[in-house]
């Protein structure tokens, strides 16, 4: 019993790392640019297909292909901010919501057309390997994904707290007008926010590839969890999103283990409802960090 519980917690933490990469991106964009990116999951999907093709065409390990997917998606993020989102900022909410929603639909349908609905998988030397510690079972691919997700989250935190550009992003998130008075160019900061957020989504895609199939709708699995984590972790709060993602991974895993294979999400949404009812501003409370 205790071992089953520990195993479920470990499974949850491992997948929670991936949720964190997606939700941190969503919360970063929301905190800095003040828009909800409904297409975030689709960039995970693009990251997966990119890694898939790099693996099948060039034999590059999906985890190694991070060094390609992250910069590529960073550039995509900058372009999306500069040519699309910039045009709807300052207008009312509707064009902003529809823009990222339309982007999501477009990307899903494009990938259906280009890649078909077939599941694509990459098999690596570690795809079937696992560590056995005591009676616990830790799949290597998920361990790599979790470890790198934590490294990337920490790197983002360090960027936001030690570099001038990172501090400028936090300043713009907290008070955009005053940030402009300090010489901060908002569009530049927003471009970096989009770039970083999409790079993290791309990283999630690459890290998923050794143990999760790519298909056009795969992003929706992760974006749903990401949105819940962003709300639980307080909108705009990066460490909050990280902690909430890990908690949700564990909650989902416990739900699957103890309630039923189809019930993982019930626990997650129950958590969301309880949090919203008891602590409406999220677990961390307060403001964007």
């Amino acid at each position: 019993m205790l071992e089953t519980l520990a195993q479920a917690v470990i499974n949850g933490l491992l997948i929670g790392g991936i949720y964190a990469l997606v939700s941190i991106g969503v919360t970063l964009i929301f905190g800095v640019v003040k828009i909800v990116n409904f297409a975030q999951g689709e960039f995970v999907m693009i990251g997966m297909y990119l890694s898939f093709f790099l693996a099948t065409q060039f034999g590059i390990d999906p985890v190694v292909s991070l060094v390609v997917t992250m910069p590529v998606l960073f550039v995509v993020g900058v372009l999306i901010q500069h040519f699309l989102i910039r045009r709807v900022l300052g207008q009312n909410d509707m064009p902003q919501i529809f823009l990222t929603f339309a982007l999501s639909l477009l990307l899903v349908n494009l990938s259906l057309m280009l890649f078909t609905a077939n599941y694509r998988t990459v098999h690596t030397w570690y795809s079937d390997e696992a560590l056995h510690i005591g009676g616990l079972y830790i799949p290597l691919a998920k361990l790599f994904a979790f470890a790198l997700a934590m490294v990337l989250s920490a790197a983002l935190w360090i960027f936001l707290h030690t570099t001038d550009l990172g501090k400028a992003m936090r300043a713009a998130a907290q008070n955009r007008d005053v940030a402009m008075l300090m010489g901060i160019n908002p569009n530049r900061v927003f471009c970096v926010a989009l770039g970083v957020a999409l790079a993290l989504a791309g990283a999630a895609g690459s890290l998923l590839m050794p143990f999760y199939p790519a298909y056009p709708l795969v992003g929706q699995v992760f974006v749903l969890m990401a949105f819940v984590a962003v709300v639980l972790g307080t909108l705009g709060n990066v460490p909050g999103a990280l902690v909430a993602s890990l908690m949700m991974g564990v909650a989902e895993s416990l739900g699957i283990q103890f309630i039923g294979a189809d019930s993982g999400l019930i626990v997650v949404f129950l958590m969301l409802l309880l949090t919203l009812a008891l602590r409406p501003s999220g677990l961390a409370g307060g403001r964007a960090r």
Binding site: R170, A171, Q174, N175, A179, R287, A288
Partner: peptide, 8 residues
Amino acid sequence: GRQVFPEM
């Protein structure tokens, strides 16, 4: 109204 960055 000062408008410092409160979380910094």
